[in-house]
């Protein structure tokens, strides 16, 4: 009898476990982002973000003084990172007016505070998406901005980091998808005009920028994990005690 109870229990748990990781064929392969949440990377990322992103995109949930959490002083923040705000307690709002932006780009550039969380999918984390996206711009004369992107086809945004990366060209091949259909697939991206940085240097800079965006999506994440260990430790002690207590009472039940 008992065996049956256990079998049903195993059944319930295993059906979920076996079937759920199965994914549909991915449309896109994302590069894994080397996210580093140390102060040096985050500070460099913050500098890149303020210089290259904040002109058009807001980070309207993040207050400048939150950057003290990544090892900057309020003076450093004021002197080096605040271009469009007066007070260090203000949020990173964008100088660009939404209406103007909509006119220029077709869509108002989205707020980026939560983009790393929003871009997560079955294909990878939000960081992977951003890392691939920021390295995936290529020249396309058919687009109004002259740029296109491998992970975000027909994106409205031009390549904001082109001076660093240079210009890329995309090579596509047409392949059979195994079901008799011909599909256009990206073969590779090639640098045709070098930028200020070598490709490895550029990747490292993008990694820092992405790390900062990940941090910005949830500034409490490091605290959260740290606190988690403490909570689990306290609960473990309580679990042992309550188990002993339960045993002390139940030894009389025959």
């Amino acid at each position: 009898m008992k065996l049956l109870d256990k079998l049903l229990c195993v059944l319930v748990l295993s059906v979920g476990a076996v079937v759920s990781p199965v994914q549909a064929a991915e449309a896109l392969r994302l590069d894994s982002a080397p996210v580093r949440l140390d102060n040096a990377s985050l500070q460099n990322g913050a500098k890149l973000f303020v210089n290259y992103c904040l002109n058009c995109h807001g980070a309207s949930f993040l207050r400048y003084n939150r950057l003290t959490q990544i090892g900057l002083t309020e003076e450093q923040i004021k002197d080096n990172l605040m271009f469009s705000a007066d007070k260090v307690g203000e949020q990173m709002k964008v100088a660009l007016r939404r209406e103007d932006a909509k006119q220029w780009f077709g869509v108002a550039p989205p707020d980026l505070t939560l983009v790393a969380r929003a871009r997560a999918s079955e294909s990878g984390t939000g960081a992977d998406w951003l890392y691939t996206y920021l390295r995936g711009f290529y020249r396309d004369d058919t687009r109004p901005t002259g740029w296109n992107n491998v992970v975000f086809p027909n994106v409205g945004m031009p390549h904001a980091l082109w001076s660093l990366q240079g210009e890329q060209e995309a090579r596509f091949v047409t392949k059979d998808d195994g079901h008799g259909k011909q599909v256009r697939q990206l073969e590779k991206l090639e640098i045709t005009k070098p930028g200020l940085l070598m490709p490895e240097e550029y990747d490292a800079q993008v990694a820092d920028l992405v790390s900062f965006i990940v941090w910005m999506g949830e500034p409490a994440q490091a605290t959260r994990r740290g606190l988690g260990w403490l909570v689990l430790a306290a609960l473990s002690v309580l679990a042992v005690l309550t188990y002993l207590l339960k045993r002390a009472y139940w030894k009389d039940v025959h």
């Binding site: 959260r224 994990r225 606190l227 988690g228 689990l232 679990a239 309550t242 339960k246």
Partner: peptide, 17 residues
């Protein structure tokens, strides 16, 4: 009570991690 603590541990793993 014991079971609740075990449950809270699993719950905390989700909440914090």
């Amino acid at each position: 009570g014991f079971v609740a603590v075990v449950f809270l541990m699993v719950f905390s793993v989700v909440v914090f991690f």
